[in-house]
């Protein structure tokens, strides 16, 4: 007992190691302490091991397609099983368009809701409002899909899309986004359902970031005679900007990988890319869900695994970027625990 080295520090429990053989070790060959330690180590290293195995396996399976098509795998928009040509650009395009659309809708709403909770809401409303919105995150993807399939799609087809076509369609440039028949199952509806699904992510993280803004900051501004909105615009938003961007990107990361809800409303079509949002399409995730178990020839299978590998890499990059941004602001505030 006396051999325990405690004088160093008590800052981190990790540094509390036993100097010399622990007492239990002396009695039987391997001590319980060691066994426990190794169990913990094994489970801990299982996490990176799974990640690495996952990546390697996907790349191995995807290799025939990647090797055959090279860069064309991501730049070609021809996905044709009959002619054995596999270019995943339509899926990448579908993923990018729906995710960006989701961000475009969800970021203002999400940040607005977070501002309401932190800046405007009367105290008794704060917790219920943020809790309710965050509860959205607990609803399974398939239920959003069910709702989108039976409720949202008909509304989009009969009301929203014709309205957008008549209101925005005639405008130059942006009008080209709303052309063609209103199908209801298209990139537009996919983006809308995604925006609902990423809302809780954006709300909860922007709320944390906004709460991390020092009170002095907003009080100072208010004391200068600013209205509440001016205080938000001039003092709070600039301070929280990076963190909010991080929240948005974390929302983006969720949007990229969403599968079931999007699959049920996006129209599932590998057709050529058109500029219009009213085109049925595919995201990478929904293409995998639809085609994976049925890819009945080796090259086709390899190509669909290639899409999975691509999705893995893209979502990893986006996740890392988001975490770096959020980490940066939480470090700036010198307040730990704002992670995720």
């Amino acid at each position: 007992m006396t051999t325990r080295d405690v004088e160093n520090e008590i800052a981190s429990p990790a540094s509390w190691t036993v100097q010399g053989p622990p007492i239990f070790a002396r009695r039987g060959g391997v001590g319980a302490d060691d066994v426990f330690k190794w169990l913990v180590y094994i489970t801990a290293f299982a996490v990176p091991a799974v990640l690495v195995a996952l990546f390697i396996l996907l790349v191995i399976d995807a290799w025939p397609a990647l090797e055959r098509f090279g860069l064309g795998f991501v730049t070609s928009s021809n996905w044709d099983n009959v002619k054995e040509q596999f270019g995943s650009l339509p899926y990448i395009y579908g993923t990018v368009v729906t995710s960006l659309l989701a961000l475009l809708i969800a970021t203002p709403v999400g940040v607005g809701a977070a501002l309401f909770v932190t800046e405007y809401a009367p105290r008794p409303l704060r917790v219920p409002v943020s809790f309710t919105i965050e509860l959205l995150a607990a609803i399974p993807s398939i239920i959003f899909g069910l709702w989108g399939f039976f409720v949202l799609t008909p509304i989009m087809r009969s009301t929203v899309e014709p309205f957008m076509k008549s209101a925005v369609g005639p405008l130059p440039v942006i009008g080209s986004l709303f052309q063609g028949p209103s199908v209801g199952k298209d990139l537009f509806t996919g983006g809308v359902i995604l925006s609902i699904m990423i809302l809780p992510t954006i709300v909860s993280i922007s709320r944390e970031v906004l709460l991390a803004v020092p009170t002095m900051q907003r009080e100072g501004m208010l004391a200068l005679g600013a209205t509440r909105w001016e205080a938000i615009r001039e003092a709070i938003i600039p301070y929280a900007r990076v963190g909010i961007a991080g929240a948005a990107i974390l929302g983006l990361a969720r949007a990229l990988g969403e599968t079931m809800a999007v699959t049920m409303v996006i129209g599932n079509s590998s057709r050529k890319i058109t500029g219009s949002l009213l085109t049925p399409g595919y995201t990478m995730a929904s293409a995998i869900a639809n085609q994976f178990t049925e890819a009945d020839n080796p090259l086709y299978f390899s190509a669909i695994v290639g899409v999975a590998a691509l999705l893995l890499v893209v979502s990893a990059i986006v996740n890392v970027a988001a975490r770096l941004m959020i980490w940066q602001i939480s470090r700036g505030v010198a307040k730990g625990g704002t992670r995720g």
Binding site: V47, L51, L256, T259, A289, F292, V305, A308, S315, N319
Partner: peptide, 22 residues
């Protein structure tokens, strides 16, 4: 390890499905 765990958390579930299938 924390980073890997976070990456795993952000992994699209369909990709996990592909991995386990394989």
């Amino acid at each position: 390890i924390r980073f890997c765990s976070d990456l795993l958390a952000g992994l699209p579930s369909i990709v996990v499905g592909v991995f386990v299938w394989a």
